[in-house]
Design a protein around this nucleic acid. Structure first.
Lengths: 340, 340
DNA sequence: CGTTTCGTAGAAAACGTTTCCTAGAAATCG
DNA sequence: CGATTTCTAGGAAACGTTTTCTACGAAACG
């Protein structure tokens, strides 16, 4: 049983193709009687207009791509949810591309998607693959960056990582902490992580605290499992060395790993060591003790991005290219006054 | 600057459209010299063949849909990763549909995607929306179910939830536990959860342990946050009632919530209460103590599904419609002998 | 030297829509 | 009653490919 097309409907209804199209899409007046007849027949034949043919004519199949580095991270999945909600509401489909932090892969896929197939793209965090983005811009291909800024012109939805980190140092300093360690990864190609690190340094300076490289733990890029990385780094580093009184982790996942390590080292959280995370992942509330962490509006990041992208696609004016959403420290149980 | 099409290339190269097509796709012999010239010109003009036009002609744009209930869950995201890997390797794009466990929504989207736009679909877990799937089958639309079985004929990639649960009871019984509680949710429309519950009951019977409804905690469907649900259920139930010596949670997320509650109730894990989870989510290893849990091959579920789907799309023969992958108990620190 | 094969490539159909252009019949107007 | 407007709707172009059909000149063959 072959798939029916618009011609089949037209024939069966004894009208022209254009009438069928207009009747079904309500794009011009068709006599009520005829319209009903056409609709009935379309239903009877189980007619489904070909989105591809329509796309060819309309030069769009209402689809955008989402580039995420690693969908497994709950940060990315939350952002994706925000994107999808707005997309659905506006009849856009989303194609998910998981780059696994691989630049070549990313570039290859961008290339392949640019075959006039996709109306726009959202890059969530991800890499510093600037060239690729530049090319897109030159071709006036609509895109939005999330949590990633290249210049003041490219549309971006951001949070202020530096400021958030600075405030975290303020926060810890207010508790009386003077030795504040840092736990991060060496993703040279990931902006957020870099910015947070800069914020840490700036915060130290602002609070007149010296930078002490011996309590700054940086994991190499190889290992993808952040929790494990945090665990190993902390365990190895503070096995024979005194730990600071507070530790900031660049992500909640790193913090979770650190929790396990500190417990193994018989350091009580928060009595012996205060910990602050970043991201406010769902599990952070259920760590023991609940993790104090920096909350960012993950879903909002996604929805704002998609809203902006739609405007770009429709060539509507956008008020501001760069939108910065608020972060906030979520106080839970992993921070207290230093014991000494 | 208008987008170039194949005609532009042909004109510039002084050859016919078909020659350009053949040269670029290597679909028939074209004189080497001509071919190089065409390729050079195509590059110069920044020509990108329209995937949509190609799709119209070829009746496919190499795209499949993934239906997941909630991408935020790391189970789903892992499965998605498995799917994407195989998809990428085979030049398929994937469209992500997040149903948020909403049947109507799901159905609506399936409808809209069936516009000859999509070559097939993978349904990951999700709902018991049988009608919809049946319709797809009747229309010979290729699909694969993951972690969800409707009948012996529909292609499915499964794990044996019942068996896994039974084995878990065996495992706990071997430790000497006689009072084994259960923590689950009342998702009537979600198969996995139902099957696990059945497995629990069957395991009890097999080990000659009575079913005691007072230690079976069932959360209502409303609250989506499983961790929170686990937390509240355990806390409320065992506030004034004696807890069992062991507790099985239908998911790691529920277990994580239970951890917090038991700690609040001053029950030590595993000394006072042994806990077993299900899913082996990344965080389970970093709970305190590390959670003993049932591992399922999440990525493998996805990759097997996509491999099967590709075969279905290509109308290749598939050896078995139903594939059952192995689960295994991952022993960590949350189970020990009962203290009394 | 006529016929077949080979190397090369163009013309046009087809994919299934949307939409522009055109137009007849009926109704309204002056 | 002729001119204009209003309903109603058909024909065909266009979207950008792939692919089938066709063909021409040159080389090989007998």
């Amino acid at each position: 049983m072959k798939r029916k097309n618009i011609r089949d409907v037209a024939r069966e209804a004894n009208v022209s193709i254009s009438t069928v199209s207009h009747a079904l899409n309500e794009t011009r007046y068709v006599k009520e009687e005829t319209k009903q007849k056409i609709k009935k027949i379309a239903k009877k034949l189980n007619y489904r207009p070909s989105a591809i043919a329509k796309g060819l004519r309309k030069k769009s199949i209402n689809t955008v791509a989402i580039f995420v580095a690693n969908i497994e991270s709950q940060f990315f999945s939350k952002v994706t949810m925000g994107i999808n909600k707005i997309a659905n509401a506006n009849n856009y489909h989303t194609i998910m591309v998981n780059t696994f932090y691989d630049e070549d892969e990313e570039e290859k896929i961008i290339e392949s998607l640019r075959n006039q197939f996709i109306d726009g793209a959202i890059f969530v965090s991800g890499l510093n693959n600037v060239d690729c983005i530049k090319k897109l811009d030159e071709e006036k291909f609509p895109f939005v960056l999330v949590t990633r800024k290249i210049n003041d012109r490219y549309p971006s939805i951001l949070i202020d990582n530096m400021k958030a980190m600075e405030e975290t140092i303020d926060y810890l300093a207010n508790f009386g902490h003077r030795k504040i360690g840092y736990l991060t990864m060496d993703y040279q190609n990931r902006q957020t992580v870099t910015e947070r690190f800069l914020g840490y340094k700036k915060g130290l300076k602002k609070n007149k605290l010296g930078y002490d490289s011996s309590i700054v733990l940086i994991g190499e890029n190889k290992m993808i499992d952040e929790m494990k990385k945090g665990y190993i780094l902390v365990r190895e580093t503070f096995r024979n060395k005194e730990a600071p009184t507070a530790m900031i982790a660049a992500t909640d996942n790193l913090a979770a790993g650190a929790y396990t390590a500190f417990k193994e080292l018989d350091l009580k959280i928060p009595q012996d060591i205060s910990i602050v995370g970043f991201d406010n992942l769902p599990m952070s509330r259920f760590l023991d003790p609940p993790l104090t962490t920096i909350k960012q509006p993950k879903e909002k990041l996604g929805s704002c991005a998609m809203e902006m992208l739609i405007k770009l696609i429709r060539s509507e004016e956008i008020r501001q290219n760069i939108q910065i959403l608020d972060t906030a420290i979520t106080e839970r149980g992993s921070v207290t006054y230093p014991s000494k």
